[in-house]
Nucleic acid binder design. Structure first.
Length: 777
DNA sequence: ATGTAGAGGGTTTTT
DNA sequence: CCCTCTACAT
């Protein structure tokens, strides 16, 4: 680096020293500078937590601590990256480079890769995602001849996952009277055997699932004190962000690592704990005080993010929860607008309302589209919102849902990569052995798998010599297996030298996968093809970055793959830089803030979710979730609910969420829909209904409407199946305008072939909900 | 072995 | 509703 390169950094550095103390309020300053010993920072929403963490690390470095000795655990990789950038701008990029920052899973995966031999794992072990794990569990359940109605792969997976997050190994599970008796009561007495077999099969495949990354790390440190000692000395200062969302296993590992130096700083907010469903435990916060009697606790209570109204509303709501640490979040910000509460008639109408609001506010308040966020409880709710935004030509981006790396075509090609890197990876082989089709069907695969189990060798080994391991496949098939295996074997040779991009490109071609996708000219097929090309581009970018020294890695495929399995939805980048409205689940919105926020779908059984209404603890978690959603808003907050919405393709009626009635009624304004066919809107009578009905003038005493709700919705009349004729111009909510070409079938199975702009579709009329439309064509 | 129709099941939330 | 798995035909 020349002097000119250093100049901006020197300027920033001096600025930092000048501004540093003045930029922080008193508790923030103390939290940032009390760097010795155990520290807990309870950081209310919007209280400048990230700033404190950044300055704390900068302060440590300024005190002469080598960044090499600092470990910072964050909730997403993106959070880690952003914080690293901020720190780099303060202490300089070369220093910041040595900081270890990342998610629990990615940091521990790195440790496990370098220490894997001690646990008998290869250093290039595969990471099974949830689908891989469930697929293996399904296989085992079938092999054991168990009924998958009773042993549901999902349930079994969750059970095993819970056990692992509580650091219960398969062996310990068997001894645990609690787990065993629970299973017996659920008439799943053989669950522990599945767990046992699952563990063995993962080991044989050189694979770890997400939970193993924690469990095995704990095991590694517990069994090898010298390894633990090494990392204790490496990480003399440990910071944990989002501490309220750590589970028992994560906390146990932190405790191991911090045992020697005790320089452990955790930051969290019990009011924002929203991951209990995956084992996160508020108890960790309470235990922390017991485990570290010397603990210094700091509370950050001043909110810099939101208006007075929003802060008050959030406080008022969360006060309904029993289990919480005492704190008082306050703000010096102006009171701002009242919170809007909107009752929509349908989910689609709710979407229209939000889209219209964004359109208007964007004009009136001179906002960018990126200033808006729409938050919902479940991913499935995004559909109606997307549609409405598209109609208004509002650019948006969806976070989460089916992420890029979860798409079938991407997982397929990644499976090829995985086998090249680790040929023992059984789930990856199963995925690609007959894709693209090469004549190795289910029957042959089963024979190979049975042999692999009987002989206790890997699938890959059996494929090398099926007859030798007692798999009686025909000679033709055997040749095909051989060919497939040799092809991969050859790539394994190349892999040791070639860079990731060349290798990946060759693999995509050679496997026939690109050709297969290219042949499919349907819109979906084209997009699948493009996705694979995009992945290859991503790999190219990775190689370029390594070459340029931007990231400190080797340009190998396995190096690329190390990151991929642990990417989170929030980590995905968007090349298109146009400002966009953000759509995401409330969970995904954690840690973010937006000037204008819409929280949609505040309905009973949706938010709070049906699944979480049976116990007080679950309901409190839902309430915290709502609290998180509210506190994302800086200036303007709108909450909405719909009277009816499509769920599982059926129109269902919903009651407003109890959380709406829990809001401080003095802080909200109720908005009516522009059109208001009140006579159609009816509902049962209850106290809350009474209140709402006063505000909305809903008749209190009236029967629940049963059918034909769609008619109450605005828009063109729906067409009945009998009214559809060939040649008619129609409109479909999803595919847009189209022309009916042909009618087939009769009665309930009557279907129509319709030419839409996006191509021909055949639709069952009882589902299609066609409207009259396409005038003027 | 492979393709297709029809049944069945699924929606919390995610590393 | 939509996707995946299963059963049957080819």
């Amino acid at each position: 680096m020349g002097f000119a390169d250093w100049l901006p950094y020197l300027c920033k550095l001096s600025l930092f020293y000048v501004d540093f103390l003045e930029e922080l309020n008193e508790p923030q300053r103390q939290a940032a500078t009390s760097v010795e010993g155990p520290v807990m920072i309870i950081a209310g929403a919007g209280s400048g937590k990230t700033r404190v963490l950044t300055y704390r690390i900068a302060y440590l470095v300024k005190q002469g601590i080598d960044p090499f000795h600092i470990l910072s655990l964050t909730f997403t990789n993106k959070a880690a990256r952003e914080m690293k950038e901020r720190i780099a701008s303060v202490i300089g990029p070369s220093e910041a480079k040595n900081l270890w920052m990342g998610t629990f899973h990615s940091v521990f995966a790195r440790i496990l890769r370098s220490e894997s031999d001690r646990l008998g794992y290869p250093s290039n072990f595969s990471i099974y995602d949830t689908d891989d794990a469930k697929s293996l569990i399904r296989t085992i359940i079938n092999e054991m001849g168990l009924d998958d109605k009773i042993y549901k792969p999902n349930t079994v997976y969750n059970r095993i996952s819970n056990a692992k997050n509580a650091l219960i190994t398969a062996h310990a599970y068997r001894q645990s009277t609690e787990f065993i008796s629970d299973d017996e009561q659920a008439s799943r007495p053989r669950l522990f055997e599945i767990y046992q077999t699952y563990t063995e099969r993962c080991f044989k495949a050189g694979a770890m699932d997400f939970d193993d990354l924690l469990l095995k790390t704990y095991e590694l440190f517990a069994r090898f004190p010298e390894v633990l000692y090494k990392y204790q000395n490496r990480f003399q200062f440990i910071l944990v962000d989002e501490f309220q969302d750590t589970n028992f296993a994560q906390y146990a590992i932190i405790r191991q690592l911090a045992a020697l130096y005790q320089n452990i700083c955790v930051v969290g907010d019990d009011a924002q704990s929203i991951y209990a469903f995956r084992g996160a435990n508020i108890q960790n916060i309470l235990d922390f005080e017991k485990d570290y009697p010397e603990l210094q606790t700091f509370k950050l209570e001043q909110n810099y993010r939101s208006t007075q109204t929003i802060v008050d509303a959030a406080n008022h709501l969360i006060a309904k929860n029993k289990a919480q640490l005492p704190k008082k979040v306050w703000t010096a910000n102006p009171s701002g607008e009242r919170i809007k509460v909107y009752r929509a008639l349908t989910d689609n109408e709710e979407g229209q309302f939000v889209a219209n609001q964004i359109f208007e506010l964007q004009m009136n308040l001179q906002k960018e589209h990126s200033d808006f966020a729409i938050l919902y409880r479940t991913n499935a709710q995004s559909r109606a919102l997307e549609e409405a935004l598209r109609k208004q030509n509002i650019p948006y981006r969806i976070y989460g849902g089916l992420s890029f790396y979860q798409r079938k075509e991407i997982k397929d090609i990644l499976a090829y990569f995985r086998v090249v890197i680790n040929p023992q990876d059984e789930e990856a082989i199963k995925r690609i052995i007959n894709y693209p089709a090469r004549g190795i069907g289910k029957v042959s695969l089963d024979k190979l798998l049975v042999a692999a189990n009987d002989q206790n060798v890997s699938l890959w080994e059996v494929m090398g010599n099926p007859a030798g391991f007692g798999a009686s496949v025909g000679s033709g098939i055997q040749r095909k297996i051989q060919e497939f295996r040799l092809g991969l074997e050859r790539f394994r040779q190349v892999a040791t030298k070639a860079n990731a991009f060349e290798l990946a490109q060759e693999l995509a071609k050679h496997s026939g996968l690109l050709k297969e996708l290219y042949a499919d000219k349907s819109p979906e097929g084209v997009s699948r093809y493009e996705n694979v090309l995009e992945l290859l581009n991503g790999i190219k970018e990775f190689c370029d970055q390594v070459e340029a020294g931007t990231i400190d890695r080797t340009p190998t495929l396995s190096s690329f793959m190390e990151d991929v399995a642990l990417l989170t939805d929030a980590d995905e980048t968007d090349d298109d830089q146009r400002p966009k409205v953000s759509l995401m689940t409330v969970h995904a919105s954690k840690g973010l803030e937006f000037p204008v926020v819409f929280i949609v779908g505040l309905e009973d059984t949706l938010f709070p979710s049906q699944m979480s209404m049976s116990t007080r603890a679950e309901l409190e978690e839902e309430r915290r979730l709502f609290y998180v959603a509210i506190t994302r808003a800086m200036e303007r907050l709108t909450i909405s609910f719909a009277e009816t919405r499509y769920r599982w393709g059926q129109l269902v009626h919903n009651e407003p969420s109890q959380f709406i009635s829990e809001l401080d009624q003095d802080l909200i304004d109720l908005i009516k829909p522009a059109y208001d066919p009140m006579s159609q809107i009816q509902g049962p009578s209850d106290p809350f209904r009474k209140k709402l009905s006063r505000q909305f003038s809903i008749p209190e005493h009236s029967k629940l409407r049963s059918t034909n709700q769609a008619k109450a919705a605005p828009g063109k009349p729906g067409l009945g199946a009998s009214e559809i004729r060939p040649g008619m111009l129609v409109r479909h909510h999803r595919f847009g305008k189209g022309k009916v070409l042909n009618i087939e079938g009769k009665g309930p199975d009557k279907s129509a072939t319709i030419l839409f702009e996006g191509g021909e579709k055949r639709l069952l009329l009882k589902f299609a909900r066609l409207e009259e439309g396409g005038n003027g064509e």
